[in-house]
Design a protein around this nucleic acid. Sequence first.
DNA 1: GCCGTTTTCGGCCCGACTGTTTTCAGTCG
Length: 575
Amino acid sequence: MRVTNRQIAEMFNEIADLLDIDGENPFRVRAYRNAARTILSYPRSMAELVEEGFDLSQLRGIGKELAKKIAEIVTTGRLRYLERLKRSHPPQLEALLKIPGLGPGRVRLLHEMLHINSIKYLEQALENGKLDKVPGFGPKLIEKIANGVKRHRYEEKRFRIDEAEETAMWLKERLLKASGVQEISVAGSIRRCKETVHDIDMVASATEGSDIMARFTSLPEVSRVIMQGTTRSSVRLSNGMAVDLRVVDDRSYGATLHHFTGSKAHNIALRKMAKERGMKINEYGIFHGDERLGGETEGDVYRLLEMDYIQPEMRENRGEIAKAQTHTLPHLIEPKDIRGDLHMHTLYSDGMETIETMAKAAQAKGYEYIAITDHTKHLTIAHGLDEKRLREQLEEIDRINEKMDGITLFKSAEVDILEDGSLDLPDDILNALDLVVCAVHFKFDLSKQKQTARILKAMEHPAFTILAHPTGRLINLREPYAVDMEKVMEAAKERGCFMELNAQPDRLDLNDRHCRLAKEVGVPVVISTDAHSPKDLNLMHYGIGQARRGWLEKEDVLNTRSLAELQKLLKQIRP
DNA sequence: GCCGTTTTCGGCCCGACTGTTTTCAGTCG
C-alpha cells in the first residue's frame, strides 16, 4: 500500500522530537517540523509525485536532503535515518514531551540524571520524590508535572468546531459584562474555521483598570487557572476546554487579533517578510525601528506589507501569501451566496419534520430551492424508503410545489451505494427523480482499490448526481474509509457529477484539502446541511467555513446557482 | 536542514509567563 502524506509527516515530526531532545540545532529541528506541515497540507500524495518524477525540493521547506528522505520513505516504506535515531533512544522518550512543563531540555535532563525514559517511569520518580534533586525542578514545577501526568490523556483531546464555538460564544457574552471592555473577538483556530480545535483563543481590548482578567479567571466554570498575567491568562474549563485570553489596549487590537488568529506558520512567514523589509511585527503592532506604523486593525498588517487582506480561513501558509502579493486571492464564498440546500431528511425516513415544515424553514432562510433526500430501503435503521413509499412522497412533493410560491422542491433521495457499486433503487424510480444523492453507508472497511471501484461503478449510473459525504468519516468517532479521492473527482468531472461538502460539524466531509483538489480538478462542490430538522439548516455556515478553508469561490459551489441555472444544468447532465 | 532582489554563508518570528533564580532558561503559543 502507498505511504500517505500523514505517515511521512509523522516520521518527520518524530525525527524533530528526537533531535530536539538531543539538543540539536533548533533550526534544524524546525526544518523537519516545517517540512512535516508542508507535506501534511499538500493536496497531492507525495507517493504519486515521486512516482511521476516530480522534484519535491520545489515545495516550500523541502530541500535536497528532505526530498531524498521522502523518496526513500515512499519507495522502501522506511527511513534508515529515523530507524538509526530510534535505536539510540528509549522508545517512549518522546511521549514525555506531551506533559505540560516538559520540553526537550527538561526531558533530556530527566533522562540523563534519573534515566527516566517513559511516562510510567516519570510517575514512579514522582512517587519516590526523586525529581526534587534535579536542578531547576522546584516544588511548583514538580506539581505541574504530576498534574500533567494524571491528565495527559484527557487533555490530548481536540474538540469539534461546533462544541468549541458554542463555549466561545458563551464566554464572550460573559466577558463583555466586565468593566472597561471595548471589544472581544474569538481568534485562533475557531476563527480560521478549523474542523477541530485544541483550545479557545480570545482577544479583548479594554481600558486600564478593567476587571476582565479577574472575571475571566474566577468564572465558576473555570476548573483550573493554568497561568495568570496582566495581559494574558490561560484557564481550563470544567468541560475540559482550555481557554487563552489576551487583553490589550485598542491601539494594538488588530495586531493582537492577527497574532492570535494564526496560524503560526502564516504568522512566521509574515514576520519574516517584515524583517526582510526592515520592519517588525509583534502582538502590539507593526514597527520600523521605534516608529510605530500600525496595529489598530488587522488590515494594517497586510497593508504595510503591500499585500491584499487575507481572510482568516486561508491563513495556513499554503500559498495564500504569494496570492495576496500578486493581488490574485480568490474571492471566497460567503453565506449570502447560498441559494438552496440539496440534502435533507423528513419524517419519511429519519428526519424530525414534515416535508412542508422543512420547505417553509428553508424559505424563511431565503432559499430558492431544496432537495428532499430521504434514505432508501437498504438503510433499514433510518426507515429507508422503498419504491412504493418514495412514489407516495413524490406525489406529496408535487402537491407542495403547487401550493408554495417562491421555493421549489426537487424530488430526490439519498440512495445507498451497495457493495457492488449498484444503487439501492430500480432504474425507473431513479429516473423519475430530479437529482440523486448517493452515499456509502456500510462496508467501510473495503480496500482502497475496491472502495474506489465501488464508487466509480455507481457514478456510471446515468441518474447519479451528487456523491454525499465522500469519505464517510465522523470526526473523533470514525476514520474516513480508504478511497482514491483524485480518481473519484476526475470521474465526477468527466461524468458531470458533483461532490458534496456535508456541513454537519461531525462530518465536514469533504475536508479543506479535498475542496482545493475539487477546485483544481474542476468539479463543482455542493454544500449541504444533511438537515434532519429545521434547526439543522443553520449548520450551513460550518460547511461554508470549510469551503473557505479550501479556497472555494461562489463559482465553485453548485448551490450558489439560481434555480433557473441549476435546472438548466441538471437537464444537461441528465438528458 | 532550508533559503537567497544582501544567494553557497549565516541567518532562521517574537514575546508572555513561570519557576527558579539573583539575572534567566525553559516552555508555550
